[in-house]
Structure formats: structure tokens, C-alpha cells
């Protein structure tokens, strides 16, 4: 069973979202990292990039799989987790903590995010 913290929001594309005022912190879920296996590479947007909700903002790779990352919200990238460049395994070890990926300053209210229960239902489908 993968870990799905109650207090976070989720996307159908397996990103998690932690809202903090006008900013969100984004990563991929425990379920996603389990499915992908040990990550070998994380490609993130650059600070200053302006993203639209639902658009591709990066990608993650393991030995046998690759997956795109989609921005859960619209806004501007204010920080990225640069540690992941040299230590992509942090995403596997601590997906909701040290494995965070980007911080985005939202330009509009987020739409269509899933609750922990909804996301759990999605992973069990």
C-alpha cells in the first residue's frame, strides 16, 4: 500500500500538491515512484518559467520507464529542488519531503485537484 497523506491534494497524473498561501509545493506521489522504480533522472522547469495547469513541466526517468510531469496549477516557478539533479533517488526515499520538485506561485485558484480519498480510489482502480 502506498502512502497518501490526508492533508495534500493530488492530480490524476500522480502529482501531489501542498498549498501554502498563494504558493504550492509539488512532487510525485509514493504510488508514482513505486510504479516507476528507482529514478535515475529528474528534469524540472527553470525558476521563472510560467506554467499553465495541466501542461508538461518536466519528466522523470527510471531504468525501464519514463513519465512526464504536469503542472497541477497555473503560475510561475519560484523554486526547484536542485538536489534532485544529482540525487534523483530522493524522490524514491522521501516523495513527500526531500523529494519535492517545484514550488509554484499561483496566478489563479487551482481547479480540479483530487482529495486524498479520491486519489486513493484512482490508484486502486
Amino acid at each position: 500500500m502506498s502512502h497518501i497523506p490526508e492533508e495534500l491534494s493530488y492530480t490524476k497524473t500522480h502529482e501531489w500538491v501542498r498549498t501554502n498561501g498563494g504558493e504550492v509545493l509539488v512532487g510525485i506521489t509514493d504510488f508514482a515512484q513505486e510504479q516507476l522504480g528507482d529514478l535515475t533522472f529528474v528534469e524540472l522547469p527553470e525558476v521563472g518559467d510560467v506554467l499553465d495547469a495541466g501542461f508538461e513541466m518536466g519528466s522523470v526517468e527510471s531504468v525501464k520507464a519514463a513519465s512526464e510531469l504536469y503542472s497541477p496549477v497555473s503560475g510561475e516557478v519560484v523554486a526547484v529542488n536542485e538536489l534532485l539533479e544529482s540525487e534523483p533517488g530522493l524522490v524514491n526515499e522521501d516523495p513527500y519531503g526531500d523529494g519535492w520538485m517545484v514550488r509554484i506561485k499561483m496566478s489563479t485558484e487551482p481547479e480540479g485537484l483530487l482529495s486524498a480519498d479520491d486519489y486513493q480510489a484512482l490508484t486502486e482502480a
Partner: peptide, 12 residues
């Protein structure tokens, strides 16, 4: 670096 390749990424 096989994750770049067609057998994993297909059209991408």
C-alpha cells in the same frame, strides 16, 4: 539511458 528511447517513450 534507455528511457530516452522508442521502446519506452514511444512517440515521445
Amino acid at each position: 539511458l534507455q528511457a530516452r528511447e522508442q521502446h519506452i517513450r514511444r512517440a515521445k
